[in-house]
């Protein structure tokens, strides 16, 4: 562990401030994700979890603060360039391309990569998500919610990101599908993926993560080992309903 700690974090966000017009949505967040870790960001509705991810992904511009990937500052370059730098966001609400087939969606996920590398990645993704292989030619809009979530995650993986960001992957899914999605997150972790996970389902998120940050109205109120936070009284009261 000590070696890991000494390493440069893969993602380092320092003193991030984000505004929506006059609304100060993110008030000086500092967080980091190390290689191979799952870090989760939990908090109530409107705490700023998605805003944080969208800002890191380049969809929103921070007013202040820095974002560094592998020690290189990457803030303010725009979302389409972030993919090329190794960041991939699986957005809230899935946002798969409804009119395209499953396969086309996956190919679009690899937009930033040379065409020659796509077949191998498709193989990879299909072996991880056999359900998608069965539905390869189907129009994405006709998939079930759970399948669309799998497609969104698979699409995000197609860019071979250094850091995968998942925004509310369990949203709107039946409990059995939530379990499936979290199983997939665990498998990704075991195969070495680095993941920044935003969830309202704090119980599930904390059970799968290494570390966690608790976000409250735009600021980090607590952080630490996920297993410790899972048993923390304040966290239990506020987010786990015990």
């Amino acid at each position: 562990m000590s070696e890991l700690n000494a390493e440069l974090p893969l993602l380092k966000v320092s003193n991030l401030h984000v505004y929506y017009g006059a609304i100060h949505a993110i008030k000086g967040i500092t967080l980091e994700v190390r290689k191979g870790e799952i870090v989760t960001l939990i908090g109530a509705n409107g705490a700023g979890k998605s805003t944080t991810l969208n800002t890191i992904a380049g969809l929103l511009k921070p007013r202040q603060g820095t974002i560094a990937l592998d020690g290189m500052p990457v803030g303010g370059t725009g979302a389409s360039k972030m993919v090329y730098k190794g960041l991939s966001l699986c957005p809230e609400g899935r946002r798969v391309f409804q009119q395209m087939t499953v396969r086309e969606n996956l190919e679009m996920g690899a937009f930033s990569r040379p065409a020659s590398e796509i077949p191998d990645s498709l193989e990879d993704v299909f072996s991880r998500f056999p359900r998608l292989k069965e539905r390869e030619k189907q129009i994405a809009g006709t998939l079930s919610g759970g399948e669309q979530q799998m497609l969104a995650m698979a699409r995000a993986l197609m860019s071979k990101p250094k850091l995968l960001m998942l925004d509310e992957p369990s949203m709107g899914l039946a409990p059995i599908l939530v379990d499936q999605i979290f199983d997939i997150i665990r498998e990704l972790h075991e195969s070495g993926a680095t993941i920044l996970l935003v969830e309202q389902n704090a119980q599930m998120a904390l059970s799968v993560a290494n570390r966690a940050y608790v976000l409250e109205t735009g600021s980090i109120s607590m952080s630490g080992n996920a297993s410790e936070l899972l048993h923390n009284d304040a966290v239990q009261k506020a987010y786990l309903g015990n």
Binding site: A79, S80, S88, P91
Partner: peptide, 24 residues
Amino acid sequence: TKMGKAMRCVSEDRGAAELMGINV
């Protein structure tokens, strides 16, 4: 074509298209 598909993506969801690395 790649550009043609990018157009369909932008047409459907500009934000998601950007997340794919498409220059809108």
